Each structure stands twice: as structure tokens, then as C-alpha cells.
Amino acid sequence: MKFLVTLVFAATLFISNKINAQNKVNITATVINVTSNDGKVGFALYNKETFMKQPIQAANGKIVDGKSTITFKDIEPGVYAIICYHDKNDNDKMDFSAQRMPLEDYGASNNHMAFAPPTFENAKFVVSDKDVSLDIKF
């Protein structure tokens, strides 16, 4: 009897993990207009609760011919936003002037640009049951 219970538990766990893995998708983000191949592009994926605080996932993308692409893997369905910046001097942070103006190019999902930092409402997009591919402009 103990063996049967263990077998049923193991089968249930396996099926549950397989279903959960099937619900997760990948998000591929490409910055299409990087002004130089110097440095790298930093990408950060957020949901509403983590926006501009702690990213759910973050990655640096190599720049080749003015483009940089990364893929966020195993993302659950939901509403997300991506912010990215061109780290020209490779110092792992966005640089600002003394007046707090950005010295490096930046962008966000949905390509909504204003003379202000990105907002979740302007950058949000929906992830369902299919992989997502986004082009972002600086």
C-alpha cells in the first residue's frame, strides 16, 4: 500500500510539473536602434509590484550591428514591462548628468517615450500561453 501511495504521489508531482512547465513561455526583446556597438544593453523584466525596483529577471545583451537581443525564459502568464538602457561605458548602471538627465539611451516595451521615466502603465504588455517577441526603440 505504501508503494502505491508513493507511486501515485510521484505521478501527480510529475504531471503537475509538466503542466506548470507548459504554461511558462519565453519573452524575446530586441533593441533595434542602438547607436554604437560599444558596451552592452541592460534589460530588466518587471511586473506591476516590482516595477523599477527589483526585476523579475535581468540580462545583458551583446550589441551587434546596432541590435541587441535577449530572451527571458520560463515566464508565467501575466502582465509585464521591460526597461532597457545602453550601457555604453560598461559600468553596469545608467549614467545621469548633474541635473539628473540620462546620459545613456534607454527604452521600454511599447516604445512610449516621454520626457520622464517610463511608467508601468505605458510599458505593460500581456503574456498568455505563447512566446512573446518585442522590438524596443531607444
Score class of each variant (00 low, 15 high):
26 N>Q: 10
23 N>C: 11
60 N>E: 14
104 E>Y: 06
4 L>R: 13
130 K>D: 13
108 A>L: 11
89 N>C: 04
86 H>Q: 06
14 F>A: 12
94 M>Y: 07
43 F>T: 02
117 P>I: 01
6 T>Q: 03
22 Q>V: 00
72 F>C: 07
81 A>Q: 00
59 A>S: 08
4 L>C: 09
128 S>M: 09
102 P>N: 02
135 D>L: 01
1 M>I: 10
37 N>K: 08
106 Y>K: 00
111 N>R: 12
135 D>H: 13
52 M>P: 01
41 V>K: 02
26 N>L: 04
134 L>A: 10
12 T>S: 14
91 N>M: 09
55 P>S: 02
125 F>M: 06
120 F>W: 10
26 N>D: 15
19 I>Q: 08
52 M>Y: 03
53 K>G: 06
61 G>W: 01
44 A>N: 09
68 S>M: 02
105 D>L: 10
53 K>Y: 03
124 K>W: 04
122 N>P: 02
58 A>T: 02
132 V>Y: 09
18 K>E: 15
76 E>Y: 14
137 K>F: 12
137 K>S: 08
99 Q>I: 12
105 D>P: 07
51 F>M: 02
110 N>A: 07
30 T>R: 07
65 D>Y: 02
110 N>F: 13
32 I>D: 02
123 A>Y: 04
133 S>D: 12
57 Q>W: 09
9 F>T: 15
25 V>Y: 01
74 D>G: 08
105 D>V: 08
22 Q>G: 13
45 L>I: 10
65 D>K: 05
11 A>N: 06
120 F>A: 05
129 D>N: 15
3 F>I: 12
2 K>V: 06
37 N>D: 11
26 N>W: 14
3 F>G: 01
99 Q>H: 07
61 G>N: 01
51 F>V: 06
17 N>I: 11
112 H>S: 13
76 E>R: 14
59 A>W: 00
19 I>T: 09
64 V>R: 03
95 D>G: 09
79 V>H: 13
13 L>W: 10
41 V>P: 05
121 E>C: 02
92 D>A: 14
68 S>L: 04
37 N>H: 03
96 F>C: 07
18 K>F: 11
5 V>K: 15
129 D>H: 14
21 A>M: 05
112 H>C: 02
60 N>H: 03
33 N>D: 11
43 F>R: 01
56 I>D: 01
132 V>K: 04
102 P>Y: 10
110 N>E: 12
73 K>G: 09
131 D>P: 13
128 S>D: 13
86 H>P: 05
